[in-house]
């Protein structure tokens, strides 16, 4: 992701401390860590386990359960393409496959220049405008092959 900060234990500890007043703070902390560093580094998982007084294995279990939390840095831009039924009813699966083939990627893959990661997503709630996608947090309805190509080109700039 663009603008992600370099990891530091000190910054991770600050983020954790800021959330310790919450009931069940693990998820808000994980979101904040990923927001700051672009992913959830192993070192942050260690810090969290210590702060929350749970084992590292348990903390690792939480991080890896959720699709959203990344264990390694991603491409500078992220495109999430919906694969759910509504989008499939409008040909999303075929369209996404062709797009991935063109980029020589599989789901979850990142272009070799590190510009774009393409992930599957299961429903954006934009089902009256299928197929839909989310590009760096911006929702896109009725996405077609042309728009996908534009995004791939934009990501490289």
């Amino acid at each position: 992701m663009a603008g992600a900060a370099q990891y530091s234990d000190e910054r991770a500890r600050e983020i954790i401390a800021a959330h310790m007043g919450l009931e069940g703070p693990a998820m808000p902390i994980l979101h904040a860590i990923q927001e700051e560093f672009g992913y959830v580094p192993d070192a942050a998982v260690r810090q969290m386990a210590e702060a929350l007084n749970i084992s590292r294995a348990e903390m690792h279990g939480v991080v890896t359960f959720y699709h959203d939390f990344r264990r390694a840095p991603h491409g500078r831009h992220t495109l999430k393409i919906c694969r759910a039924e509504s989008c499939q009813s409008m040909g999303a699966e075929r369209q996404a496959r062709a797009f991935l083939d063109k980029l020589k990627l599989d789901w979850g893959g990142t272009t070799p220049d590190g510009a774009l990661t393409v992930e599957p997503i299961y429903c954006l709630g934009l089902c009256a405008h299928s197929p839909s996608a989310l590009y760096d947090g911006e929702p896109i309805g009725c996405v077609d092959a042309e728009r996908l190509d534009e995004i791939a080109a934009e990501a490289r700039d």
Binding site: A84, E85, G125, C127
Partner: peptide, 11 residues
């Protein structure tokens, strides 16, 4: 956590 495809009423 409205995850069902085809639903958006909660949203």
């Amino acid at each position: 956590d409205e995850g069902d495809s085809g639903t958006f009423a909660d949203r």
